[in-house]
Design a protein around this nucleic acid. Structure first.
Length: 423
RNA sequence: GGAGGCGUCGCCUAGUCCGGUCUAUGGCGCCGCACUGCUAAUGCGGUUUGGGGUAGCCCCCAUCGAGGGUUCAAAUCCCUCCGCCUCCGCCA
């Protein structure tokens, strides 16, 4: 949720943000109008209620005829208070619905436009020239099956399409990668967390996934619990309703969890291998900080992602995601995209968002500031995830189907080279 | 799944049986002031959170786990839900 005071004081800022996102800027005036109505309805209710409270105290003191007279007088008032309360509640509900539907105000410098209007900030590393090396690269699924590292067929048998088993060196590679990511996060001052992957409705809504991404979320109706698509959800809920101490120093968490996504609406997309799956693992960074520090903290999360990708020794680029592709809570988002040789293009492997106070306002996460309690800022970013295996396998493959393990992962995997097994 | 207990303004706690004087008691902590070589101790005052009104001093509304209901009036009565604790049952 955005700050209503910003919308009242500088509606043009919000209009410009909506325009850049390609969304309706008329909603700004709709909200201002609803806010006006809500406040006048509230004032009407509150003054009637004050009158009722005042007479109520007289009733308590009065006796006999006086009391009977007062009761007769206040009976109508009680009915009127009830009506005014209902009116105010309805006006409040209209206002809330509008406020929840508007996305965060974008940060200065975010490219305008939609999915294809991103700006490439930097390329790191150079894709290998397989033609010059004299062989055609195999895709990650071929490679992984050759290494007996991945079993898609049995994943489908046991759970359905887009499920899989990571097996043998596949499991070892993922565990080594996740462990390295966690160790680096700890070294950088992040508090390691293993989070709940099932959360209640309140938490899911607070993180913003019920209003906007409901189709992508697994729901367990018997218990009204939701499987989370990222530990961001649990980490955002962690300090909900609390006053935390981030006036000077950010609180930084690194959450490890399995992540679950329905991938509804992506039928036919990325059906080969593990690029798009229903369940995967991820190390997610999540930061609470003073709003004034959010921008710097965002760059710090990006730097963490870069260092980790550098250790994977894979070529990647960094993009500044366009306003229309940000998602509601983000004011700015940087994605790192790794080179996938067999697709001849870059694919998203990390994503870091600065949600400023948008998410925390909804979750009620505050800190003691100079002007009393203020809303904290939240940020998140990927430090490692299962999809990275695609880039690791494809970029480090050799002509014989073996795969070199990057230096940084060798201690964790316990191998320098992953070698194909006999068929 | 069953039985019982509990949930009060940062923490602990009184109040709930029997609705109104609850503007929620007291302690701890915290903040300010006073006193005191310094510290400590002591005394006095302040200290829930959110919203609305106001130029401002301030005023008003809501808030006793959450949501409904009864009533002129609810921390207090009724209903539903949530969470925690104890015991029993079941159990990858």
């Amino acid at each position: 949720m955005i700050d209503i005071r910003l919308l009242r004081d500088q509606p043009d800022v919000v209009r410009a943000s909506q325009r850049a996102r390609g969304e309706d800027e008329g909603i700004v005036d709709a909200i201002l109008d609803a806010d006006e109505q809500r406040r006048s309805a509230l004032t009407a209710y509150e003054s009637a209620r004050a009158e009722q409270n005042r007479i109520g105290k007289e009733v308590a003191r009065a006796k006999g005829d006086d009391k009977a007279a007062l009761l007769a007088q206040v009976k109508d008032l009680a009915a009127r208070v009830k009506d005014l309360d209902a009116t105010a509640a309805a006006a409040g509900a209209r206002y809330d619905a509008l406020m929840l539907s508007i996305g965060n105000v974008i940060e200065d410098g975010v490219p305008a436009g939609g999915e294809d209007d991103y700006v490439v900030l930097e390329h790191i590393g150079t894709p290998r020239d397989f033609e010059a090396e004299g062989f055609a690269p195999r895709d990650h699924l071929d490679l992984a099956e050759g290494l007996d590292a991945l079993d898609m067929a049995r994943g489908a048998k046991v759970a359905g399409s887009r499920f899989y088993f990571l097996k043998g060196v596949g499991a070892r590679l993922e565990m080594a990668m996740l462990t390295l990511a966690m160790q680096r996060a700890i070294a950088a001052g992040f508090v390691p967390m293993i989070t709940p992957t099932l959360v209640n409705r309140t938490t899911m809504a607070g993180a913003g996934f019920i209003d906007h991404h409901l189709d992508e979320v697994y729901h367990l109706p018997a218990d009204d619990l939701f499987l989370t698509g990222t530990s961001e959800v649990a980490l955002a809920g962690y300090h909900s309703g609390e006053v935390i101490d981030v006036a000077d120093t950010p609180i930084r968490y690194a959450g490890q969890s399995s992540c679950y996504r329905r991938e509804a609406g992506s039928y036919g997309k990325d059906t080969r291998g593990i690029i798009r799956v229903h369940q995967f693992n991820k190390i997610e960074m999540f930061v609470y900080c003073h709003p004034d520090q959010a921008r710097d903290e965002h760059r710090r999360l990006l730097a963490m992602e870069r260092e980790m990708l550098d250790l994977m020794e894979i070529p990647y680029r960094i993009i500044d995601v366009a306003a229309g592709d940000l998602g509601g809570p983000a004011a700015r988002k940087f994605d790192c995209e790794a080179w996938v040789p067999t697709q001849g293009r870059y694919r998203e492997v990390t994503s870091t968002s600065n949600c400023t106070t948008f998410q925390a306002r909804r979750l009620g996460t505050r800190f003691k500031g100079e002007k009393g309690n203020e809303i904290a800022a939240t940020l998140n970013g990927t430090l490692a995830t299962t999809r990275w295996l695609v880039a690791l396998l494809e970029n480090h493959q050799q002509a014989d189907g073996s795969v070199l393990v990057p230096e940084a992962l060798r201690p964790g995997v316990g191998l320098d080279v992953l070698t194909p097994v006999a068929p």
